[in-house]
Design a protein around this nucleic acid. Sequence first.
DNA 1: CCTTATTTATAGCAATGGCTATAATCGCCA
DNA 2: TGGCGATTATAGCCATTGCTATAAATAAGG
Lengths: 168, 168
Amino acid sequence: MRVGVGMVDKAGLIENQGALVDADAQVESFRQTRNNRRTELVEDYVELIADLIDHDGEARQVEIAQRLGVAQPTVAKMLKRLAADGLIQQRRYRGVFLTAEGKELARHCRERHHVVESFLCALGISAETARNDAEGIEHHVSAETLEAFRAFVGKNATDAGAGREPPR
Amino acid sequence: MRVGVGMVDKAGLIENQGALVDADAQVESFRQTRNNRRTELVEDYVELIADLIDHDGEARQVEIAQRLGVAQPTVAKMLKRLAADGLIQQRRYRGVFLTAEGKELARHCRERHHVVESFLCALGISAETARNDAEGIEHHVSAETLEAFRAFVGKNATDAGAGREPPR
DNA sequence: CCTTATTTATAGCAATGGCTATAATCGCCA
DNA sequence: TGGCGATTATAGCCATTGCTATAAATAAGG
Ligand SMILES: [Mn+2]
Ligand SMILES: [Mn+2]
Ligand SMILES: [Mn+2]
Ligand SMILES: [Mn+2]
C-alpha cells in the first residue's frame, strides 16, 4: 500500500482511469503465487508419502511414481531433495520414511487438502471435479481463505465430501 | 474408473482399508494440475498485457516486468515464446500487441480471474487476501467449478468484490 | 547359495523460468 | 543533427522438473 491508484506519473498525466490494480499490490500477488509454486510439489510428495505409509506401511519409489504419473527417476531425484531438506529419510531399497518435520508438513497439507476438497463438494461440485481441482487449488489457499472454507463446510452440513478425518 | 477401491492385490491381501483414493483417479488429478501449471504463466502474461493495453494504450516490457516483479530479460524471453505461440505480436521497440487468439485467451482469463476474486470476496475474505489467493487459484479452476463460483456470487449479492466488468 | 525379478541409482538430455551483465537500438530534446 | 537516456536484445549462468536408457543393488525363491 504505497503508491495507490490515481497518481500523477512523470509525464504529468492522471493514471488508472481504467481501474488497473495498484502496482505494488499486484506484484505482491504474483510474488506470493511464485512462492507457492516453488513449494507445491514438495507438499504433494510429502502428503502422498504419508498416505502410502498409513495405508501400505511403506512408501516405495515405484508406488509414488505410479500415483503421481511420472517416471521413477523423476521421483528418485525429488526424494534426494526431500532428504536433503530434512523432510524424509531414505533407507536404500527399503522405502522412504518421514522425519518429524516431514510428518508435520504432511499433517498440515493433508488437512488443508481435505478442507479444500470438502469445500468444493459442499458448493455442489461433483466429487470428481472437486478432487481434480482441489489438487491444484490447495497450494494457493492462505490461512484466511482456509478458515473461510472450513466455516462454510461447517455451516453447510449437506457435506457430500470425501471424509478422511473424523469431523472432530 | 478402472480399478476401484478394495481390490485384492498380488499378495492376496485386501487393500485400501485406510481409504486411499483410487490410483487412476489420483494420477488424473496430478496430471491435470501439472497441465495447469504449464499454462498459468502464459495466462498471467496475456491477461496483464490486455490490461496494460486497455489502460495505457500499450504494453512495454519494462512495465510488464515491474508489475510481475521479475527482471526485464525474463519478460523478453517469455514474450518471444508468446510470439512463437501466436498469442502476441512484437514490434521492436514499440511494445507488444495481442493477436486475435491472444485477445480471446485474455478475455477468458480475465473473466475467470474476476469470478474467482469476486467469489472469495463474497465468502467474506478480505480484499487483499482475495486478490493474492485468486492470482494462484484461478489457474486451477475448471469450468464446472467456475460455474459454481459464479452462481454463488450471483446468489450472494452482498458482493464486496472488485468490479471490473459490469454485472451483465 | 545362487539366480533372477524387482527396485533403485545414475547419466545425460530438454524445456521452463529465473537471474546479472552488457550490447544495441530508438526517440526525443538541446 | 547529434547525443543521451530509456528501452530492448542478447549472452551466459543456475535451479527445477520432467524424460529415456542403462547400470547396480537387493530380496527372495528354488
Ligand atoms: Mn494434496
Ligand atoms: Mn496438490
Ligand atoms: Mn490472472
Ligand atoms: Mn494468476
